[in-house]
């Protein structure tokens, strides 16, 4: 069904023993150089659910610790208008704090991504990450002109579901980064967007694994609605004090308590974006996941199976003369 001819299949040229003319696609282990052989035959596919979720990007304990710490810090940087205790003299602080956050959040994001890829990234993960980020970046401008149609999340949620939380986080961050580079949208808002969409992918990977079939689609659609509103809420909250300045009745008031500010913010977000952008984003997510979800999930799972992320790999000594063992 696919329209890709196997024209520049690198395996056919690289692997010794396979004559160049014969380009029979090796479905089980693409991407293995000649001297790497799977330790065992690929796991028997008795149950289809064996590859319901692959772990494309394994998050070690150290990276997990960094991720949790950085997420807490990031959350505090998003929610700072609600965290400031009521105090008259904090005005000066509130002026400089968000500027510091703009400088620090990129560093935190970089540290997390570096820790997650520490020890090298599997080439298959890297290539999948790049290609899916390209798809996301290409999907994003489709809806940008029309109010509220935000197409960037649906593939992110499905991919996070299939490839696991670590991959979901990395995909969310790289998608927005690539999209910003393609559309020249780099700015102080970019680290915040990257962090928030990374969380969307991370959350999709952390959803309960059990549901399948229609239940799974319903679960993902519900998550899509939640993610749409949560993303809008966080992005609004961070930018709220900048967006309308101080002094109006909907403005951030450093002298009021967190609850009063939350109350004000609720009306601000209702007045600016909740009905238009966030609801549009939620509806787009539900429709896209419901209509395309099953087919896209199947496609992604097929790719995960072909990539064989979970197959243990061992290095064996090369045979004499490079004659393939098989």
């Amino acid at each position: 069904m696919t329209t890709t001819p196997a024209r520049d299949d690198p395996q056919a040229e690289q692997r010794p023993g396979v004559s160049p003319g014969k380009s029979a696609p090796d479905e089980s282990v693409p991407g293995k150089p000649a001297r790497v052989t799977p330790a065992a035959t690929p796991p028997p596919r008795t149950k289809r659910s064996a590859v319901r979720r692959a772990t494309a990007l394994r998050v070690g304990p150290r990276a997990a610790l960094t991720l949790v710490g950085a997420s807490l810090i990031g959350l505090a940087m998003f929610c700072w208008p609600l965290l400031v205790p009521p105090q008259p003299q904090s005005v000066a602080h509130a002026e400089q704090a968000p500027l510091l956050f703009v400088v620090l959040l990129p560093i935190i994001l970089a540290v997390v991504l570096a820790e997650m890829t520490e020890g090298g990234l599997d080439p298959k993960t890297l290539a999948l990450l790049g290609v899916l980020a390209a798809l996301n970046a290409a999907l994003r401008p489709l809806g940008a002109g029309t109010a509220g149609i935000e197409t960037v999340f649906f593939l992110l949620i499905l991919a996070g579901r299939v490839f696991g939380p670590g991959f979901g986080f990395a995909l969310g961050a790289t998608s927005l980064f690539a999209s910003a580079l393609l559309t020249a949208g780099v700015g102080p808002w970019l680290p915040f967007q990257m962090m928030a969409s990374g969380w969307v992918g991370l959350g999709a990977g952390l959803l309960p694994r059990r549901p399948s079939g229609r239940a799974e689609i319903a679960l993902l659609a519900a998550y899509g609605v939640f993610a749409a509103y949560a993303f809008g809420f966080l992005m609004n909250l961070w930018f709220w004090p900048f967006a309308i300045g101080d002094g109006t009745q909907l403005s951030f008031d450093p002298e009021a308590g967190p609850l009063a500010n939350l109350h004000t913010f609720f009306f601000y977000t209702l007045a600016t974006s909740a009905f238009g952008w966030d609801t549009g984003r939620a509806i787009t997510n539900v429709i896209a996941i419901a209509v395309l979800g099953p087919a896209v999930l199947a496609t992604l799972r097929r790719a995960a199976r072909r990539a064989a992320f979970d197959t243990p790999v061992s290095f064996a000594a090369a045979d004499h003369g490079g004659v393939p063992r098989r």
């Binding site: 299949d9 150089p33 000649a34 599997d122 080439p123 298959k124 290539a127 999948l128 290609v131 790719a303």
Partner: peptide, 26 residues
Amino acid sequence: IIPVLEDALNRSLALAAAMASRGYGR
């Protein structure tokens, strides 16, 4: 959309194979 996605994923695996065979990831 599905064929385009499939096409893109196939391409990514081919790219990964090409990178691994050239020693990337060592």
